[in-house]
């Protein structure tokens, strides 16, 4: 009996010496902060992701919405959280924009990337009854009368606003950028014929393009859109501009490697799950899985690009 007790004691002792975050992670529920309101694209994607991830984790993930400040509130919460893997964020491209605008108390290196799940390029869309059949027509018109073509986007300093600015720079044209409360109101105004174009993603306009109300002119990506493979990319058309949004799992910096590796493994399995992929497709979302190292590179590139762009344009009082 003594022998058994000794073994048990030894085992217990060994367990005690294990670091708290090692193989036994997750030992309790993981909070995934969504920095937008319930019901939006980021929220739906996270809920779907968490559903599938929970089948692979010892303790479940739970979604917590912390909207506000274009994502600043929820993202700040995660940036300042204890780096133990129990509070993560479904982050988006805004982590590389908000700090440059000076409205977020965090920096992009306050986060440690885990995996990118989804990405959408920006695109230029006009009304189907407009005279611009191609992007060349559109650029020519913009050059002829600078600042008259009204391009709707999802708000000043938002990814699609920066996309319109970046495209204008690459094409040497100036647009009248009109910010809206989101991509959808901008698209509605375009359909009503009150503005000339929008710079939102193909997914945001797909319904109306298919119904023959709107026309996509070009996608701001290096590769063609999976939704609209017949639409040319900007680089094909000779404009060096690649801007888009993404969504991916982030942890606070200094989160230990083994925790990150567990989450990377889970993310990869979820991203490869055909059921999850089908769900994304139905939500009109483009699957764009990247593992942590490549994801970090993509974030660094965005950070560089938007930092340059924002310091180049005068955003205040625009």
């Amino acid at each position: 009996m003594k022998f058994k007790q000794a073994i048990a004691g030894l085992l217990l002792g060994l367990l005690g010496t294990l670091p708290a975050t090692a193989q036994n992670y997750p030992a309790r529920n993981i909070e995934v902060i969504v920095p937008t309101a319930a019901g939006g694209g980021t929220d739906l994607l996270t809920r779907s992701f968490v559903d599938h991830a929970n089948k692979l984790l010892a303790k479940p993930m739970g979604v917590v919405n912390k909207p506000g400040g274009g994502g600043a509130v929820g993202l700040t919460d995660v940036a300042r959280a204890r780096p133990n893997g129990y509070k993560l964020a479904m982050g988006f491209v805004e982590i590389t924009i908000l700090p440059h605008l000076g409205i977020a108390p965090f920096k992009v290196d306050d986060f440690r990337p885990i995996a990118r799940i989804n990405a959408e390029p920006a695109a230029i869309t006009v009304r189907a009854d407009s005279s611009w059949q191609t992007l060349e027509d559109f650029v020519a018109a913009a050059k002829e009368k600078p600042n008259t073509i009204r391009v709707g986007s999802s708000g000043t300093g938002s990814i699609y606003h920066l996309a319109a600015v970046a495209f204008g720079k690459a094409a040497g044209a100036e647009f009248n950028n009109v910010p809206f409360e989101g991509a959808n109101p901008a698209v509605t105004t375009l359909i009503g014929g009150h503005i000339e174009a929008v710079s939102v993603s193909p997914a945001e306009v797909s319904t109306y393009v298919e119904a023959g109300q709107l026309r996509l002119l070009g996608v701001m990506d290096k590769e063609r859109s999976a939704l609209f493979p017949e639409i040319p990319t900007m680089s094909e058309l000779g404009y060096d501009v690649s801007v888009g949004t993404w969504r991916g799992l982030l942890a606070p910096k200094n989160t230990p490697d083994d925790v990150i590796n567990t989450l990377r493994e889970v993310s990869r399995k979820v991203a490869e799950n055909p059921e999850f992929q089908a769900q994304m497709k139905r939500m009109n979302m483009t699957e764009a899985y990247l593992d942590a190292p490549e994801f970090a590179k993509a974030i660094a590139q965005d950070d560089q690009q938007f930092g340059d762009l924002i310091s180049n344009i005068n955003l205040v009082g625009n």
Binding site: G68, G69, G70, I103, E181
Partner: peptide, 20 residues
Amino acid sequence: GLDPMAGMPRFTGGMSELYE
């Protein structure tokens, strides 16, 4: 809150909770 057009914070006292 955040200025609806220029996107800059107004009267928030640095609190991002007051952006909306």
